[in-house]
C-alpha cells in the first residue's frame, strides 16, 4: 500500500491505496467525489477529465500514486457554493447536455481551454474537444455552451479586476 496525499478542491486529503489504483478510483471510491465519471476507461472518451496542477488530464490514465503531492480540481470544485461556475451555467443555459454523462469531462476540458485561449473560435473549440466524446452526439450545443461559457468567464475576469 502507498499513502497518497492530494489537495482536492482546496482540501488536503490522504488515503492508503495500492499503487495500481487509478486516480479516478481514488477520487470516486476513497474520497467520494463521484462527479468525475468513468466512461471508456481507455483514455478515449474524456468523461474522467479533471485538472492536475491546473492542467486537464484523463484521471483514468493516471495512477493515484503519480498524483501524490499534486493539487487536483474536480467538477465538484468548480462551483462557488450555490453559485455555478460560468461554464456550468453556460451548459445549463444552452442545453449543453442530454444524458449528462460526458458533461463533467466536457466542462473541465472547456475550462482548461479558456485558461489559455480566452476567446476560442468554434473550430478551436471543436479541435480542443477531440478527447471528449458525447455518446448522445450533442456536440452542437456543447460547442455553443463552451463559446458562451468562455464569454462569461471573460466577463467575470474583467469584473474581478
Amino acid at each position: 500500500m502507498a499513502s497518497v496525499t492530494i489537495t482536492v478542491n482546496g482540501q488536503k486529503r490522504t488515503a492508503d491505496v495500492e499503487p495500481r489504483t487509478l486516480l479516478v478510483q481514488l477520487l470516486r471510491e476513497n474520497h467520494g467525489l463521484t462527479g468525475t465519471h468513468v466512461g471508456c476507461d481507455t483514455s478515449q472518451c474524456g468523461a474522467c477529465v479533471i485538472h492536475v496542477n491546473g492542467k486537464s488530464v484523463k484521471a483514468c490514465t493516471m495512477l493515484a500514486v503519480q498524483a501524490d503531492g499534486a493539487s487536483v480540481t474536480t467538477i465538484e470544485g468548480l462551483a462557488d457554493g450555490a453559485t455555478l461556475h460560468p461554464m456550468q451555467e453556460a451548459f445549463r443555459d444552452n442545453h449543453g447536455l442530454q444524458c449528462g454523462f460526458c458533461t463533467p469531462g466536457m466542462v473541465m476540458s472547456a475550462v482548461d481551454l479558456v485558461q489559455h485561449n480566452a476567446d476560442p473560435s468554434e473550430q478551436e473549440i471543436r479541435d480542443w474537444l477531440e478527447g471528449n466524446i458525447c455518446r448522445c452526439t450533442g456536440y452542437h450545443n456543447i460547442v455553443k455552451s463552451v463559446k458562451a461559457g468562455a464569454a462569461a468567464m471573460r466577463k467575470t475576469k474583467t469584473k474581478k479586476k
Binding site: V57, K58, E130, G131
Partner: peptide, 9 residues
C-alpha cells in the same frame, strides 16, 4: 498528437 489531455501527460 492525440488530444489535449494526452498532450498534457
Amino acid at each position: 498528437i492525440g488530444d489535449p489531455q494526452v498532450r498534457n501527460r
